[in-house]
Design a protein around this nucleic acid. Structure first.
Lengths: 165, 165
DNA sequence: TATAATTGTTAGACATGTCTAACAATTATA
DNA sequence: TATAATTGTTAGACATGTCTAACAATTATA
């Protein structure tokens, strides 16, 4: 209800292509169809086909057999996907203590489906955890204790509960 | 690497159908094509078509114009989806303080793509938060403070950081 | 610089999952 | 219990995105 998307929504696939092109193009590097296909895990004709579609939407510039480049709008979308990707990876890796590889895999999937509200909150959550790891009564540390021992740390016992207001 | 799926992976769509049938069938209630179509937000022929596919995989029993019922295997898969759905909803609602509706929407999407490792950790995380909300230095409360004021609570300041070991 | 290797494209098949239109079965009600 | 309303199915179109096979362009190298 509150979400009024101004720009055309992209599918998960198209977001993946934009993201890959942005990542491969970092620092003015030339981007090749082959690289994109390897990064995404599809065959080259799939890339050509996607580039055609993205060109029609003016998100990518693509000369036949030639250069591949994001338009400003394509770049904006790609950056947004990458931003989500990074926040999600950090959440899974830092906050939940998941190995980098799995964290990346999950981020790759979730980045395409999560709402902007949840994304925003999750980002703040990670910032909070990272900025305040010990002050917040060593949150990740306690969480790890719980993961390892399967029971709550001592200072979570009920006698401590009524310290609120 | 560690994940060796014994049962055939289902697509997000098929998982949605199984989930809807399980939810609608709670307490022996008769399940209708119409209801499924409304719950998922597709037209009836899409449901008929999905039921055919699921019947072939023996996840659903479906008599033409007649009853719709999950097989034990179909039910197992549906329960699993529902379990993920609920944990995700609780995470977004309880831990991140997101409204129930958005929490549900996000859970509906993410339940189909998250890894079992992340799911397990996230579940434990929610259990931890819910079991230990005040003892853990009022974690959700501090997080809300951060959300509202945009800065860390006082006791996150650097002078408190070296209290680790 | 010919030729071989590599990279990229085109054409068209295929899988998934949706839809509309037309019809069939079932259920409700006059 | 005929008839109308509702629910469900079938047939087939369509959109998305993948693939293989064949060919074309580019680049590397003999």
């Amino acid at each position: 209800m509150s979400k009024q998307e101004a720009t055309r929504e992209q599918t998960a696939s198209m977001e993946d292509y934009l993201e890959a092109i942005a990542n491969l193009g970092e620092g003015k590097k030339v981007v090749r169809v082959k690289q994109i296909s390897e990064m995404i895990g599809v065959k080259m004709p799939s890339v050509t086909s996607a580039l055609k579609k993205l060109s029609e939407q003016e998100l990518v510039e693509h000369a036949r057999y030639g250069h591949i480049k994001l338009t400003p709008e394509g770049d904006r979308i790609a950056r947004d996907v990458i931003r989500r990707h990074e926040a999600l990876t950090r959440f899974f890796a830092q906050a939940l203590g998941i190995d980098k590889e799995t964290a990346e895999e999950d981020a790759c999937k979730i980045e395409h489906v999560i709402s902007s509200l949840s994304m925003e909150r999750l980002t703040k959550f990670v910032e909070f955890i990272e900025a305040c790891p010990l002050g917040s009564a060593n949150f990740p540390g306690r969480y790890e204790y719980y993961l390892e021992h399967g029971e709550l740390p001592l200072d979570c016992s009920s006698r401590n509960v009524r310290k609120k207001k």
